[in-house]
């Protein structure tokens, strides 16, 4: 089972039909138009200010790229409604290549962030560094991300995934994230009680029953202390919640 018709991802043959020769990519940036079905569509043709893309009068023709006319400006990337155009550039270094692709998800990555470069099926290919995140007005809401990837993966990486796809919350009662707890420890909070003071972790309804071990672990990781030395915060009544009224009913007089 292969090919865009069956899997949604280009087969090896389909890829071969659209890849520019490596020498071209070594010379500088160039478009890769991964549009292999005859659909009635041609915005790419108009998008290119250098006339490098030709569809012709029959708009179901496949777009053809003139490798010499293409200057790798990337303008066509955000015009293609199919998000089918990418840019590769192998000219910048011996080991790394740049890959540019449209990315219409939030949150956006930040420059220099390390992300997972993924292939046409969303599978991880290689760790990649974000070089540029272009949200300019001419992009009309389609952000163009540029990644630096290992050169041999330049024809495989076609999108990315953020490495931390969401915050990890250690204290769910007070919504304190792992990042905040680490930050607090780095600022000098070396005990669960001190982390609690700085972040409120463990101040909620469960009074730390859920999060205290998770916090201890972060402290141990950050400070190198043994978990044996990381004690729970001071234990005070009530160990389960009780109503003010019930407490008020007591008549202890020690």
């Amino acid at each position: 089972m292969e090919g865009v018709k069956l899997t949604g991802a280009l087969s090896a043959d389909e890829q071969a039909s659209v890849f520019p020769p490596n020498e071209r990519a070594e010379r500088g940036p160039v478009a890769v138009i991964e549009c292999v079905q005859q659909i009635p569509c041609n915005p790419c043709e108009k998008a290119c200010p250098f006339g490098a893309i030709e569809v012709g009068p029959d708009i179901t023709n496949l777009p053809r790229l003139d490798l010499d006319k293409c200057r790798g400006c990337g303008l066509c990337l955000s015009k293609c409604p199919g998000l089918a155009i990418f840019l590769v550039d192998a000219s910048k270094s011996a080991t790394e290549a740049l890959v540019m692709f449209p990315y219409e998800y939030l949150p956006l990555p930040a420059p220099d962030e390390i992300v997972d470069g993924v292939d046409r099926t969303g599978r991880f290919v290689a760790k990649a560094r974000v070089v540029k995140v272009d949200t300019g007005a001419q992009r009309e809401g389609t952000t163009i991300v540029t990644l630096a990837v290992p050169k041999q993966t330049m024809h495989d990486v076609r999108s990315m995934r953020l490495v931390a796809p969401g915050e990890v919350f250690l204290c769910r009662c007070c919504e304190v994230s792992e990042t905040e707890v680490r930050q607090a420890v780095r600022e000098g909070a070396k005990t669960v009680a001190a982390v609690k003071m700085r972040t409120r972790a463990g101040m909620g309804l469960c009074q730390g029953r859920t999060c205290r071990r998770l916090i201890s672990r972060v402290i141990a990781e950050e400070t190198g202390q043994s978990p044996a030395d990381i004690l729970p915060p001071t234990s005070r009544a009530p160990v389960r919640t009780l109503s003010l009224e019930a407490l008020a009913g007591g008549d202890d007089n020690e």
Binding site: G204, T234, A237, T241, L242, S243, L244
Partner: peptide, 9 residues
């Protein structure tokens, strides 16, 4: 009266 106490210090 009905409010819950979760901790004392």
């Amino acid at each position: 009266a009905k409010v819950n106490i979760i901790r004392t210090f």
